[in-house]
Design a protein around this nucleic acid. Sequence first.
DNA 1: TCAAGAATGTAGCACAGGCTACATTTCAGC
DNA 2: GCTGAAATGTAGCCTGTGCTACATTCTTGA
Lengths: 142, 142
Amino acid sequence: MADDTLKPVAQRHERVRRQHNDELAEDYVEAIHGLLEENEQARVTDLQGIFGVSHVSVIRALDRLEARGLLERSRKEGIRLSAEGQQMAQESARRHELVVKFLRVLGVSNTRAEADAEGIEHHLSEETLRAMRRLIRQRERG
Amino acid sequence: MADDTLKPVAQRHERVRRQHNDELAEDYVEAIHGLLEENEQARVTDLQGIFGVSHVSVIRALDRLEARGLLERSRKEGIRLSAEGQQMAQESARRHELVVKFLRVLGVSNTRAEADAEGIEHHLSEETLRAMRRLIRQRERG
DNA sequence: TCAAGAATGTAGCACAGGCTACATTTCAGC
DNA sequence: GCTGAAATGTAGCCTGTGCTACATTCTTGA
Ligand SMILES: [Mn+2]
Ligand SMILES: [Mn+2]
Ligand SMILES: [Mn+2]
Ligand SMILES: [Mn+2]
């Protein structure tokens, strides 16, 4: 459908649904990228521990991400991110860091900042991200 | 499971999944509350227009919300919120307004503020909400 | 009044993302 | 090299949230 004769309020809700579709992909490639950097490998078990779901759920998520071209798996090579996957991972990680930093500057504790960032990071427009960077800069200088 | 022997990172992701479970409920009761205030009635068609989904999806969502005790429906009375539903609606509406206000104060345009708020409003701790109110107060005064 | 159209509801489908139970493969330590 | 445990994979289930097609009920204007 993707009808743009939708009312503005409906377009906003549709956008949130799209963001939720991308959310799992963003968090997974970010986690995989992190694991590959520090461990040389990213295993199903590691991801199970990170996301707190069963190994079956991890495997099925990886299947979908592989179908989307974000990663590849093989018995001997393990999980590797595609170019697109790496791109998404880096952007997601940078954005995650930015959101946490922003919340910290606002005065939120580290624990809460990390927790809230995990959800809100997927719902921010470029404009809002710019505004966050601006506030960080202001608070860090003057 | 709801195991609290989960790693902290897994607890964060679990919390986000819980927030997504409540998200539809919060947005629906908020929308219904608004419709009842200005129209005296909230119809399936109205909600279809607000959320941009089919009337079938609205009806099935209402079924679930009714099962959760947030509202009641009858042929002649239409949709009415339960006490719990009204409570949730008011809190959701207040929080939504707060988030929009915060983003506006940050310098985000009204359109983008409304759009981003629709997603992030469901992922904020009390601590972050307090920090947002604090910034609004600071900016509004001196 | 009654027929058309609007609104609501039902049947049945798809897919994402959870789960348990069971099967297979891989890997370490003896 | 063998064996038991860890890791991975499969089968089959559930719920939520989306859809189209069809059925019913309500409302309204000629
Ligand atoms: Mn996240
Ligand atoms: Mn993240
Ligand atoms: Mn919302
Ligand atoms: Mn979300």
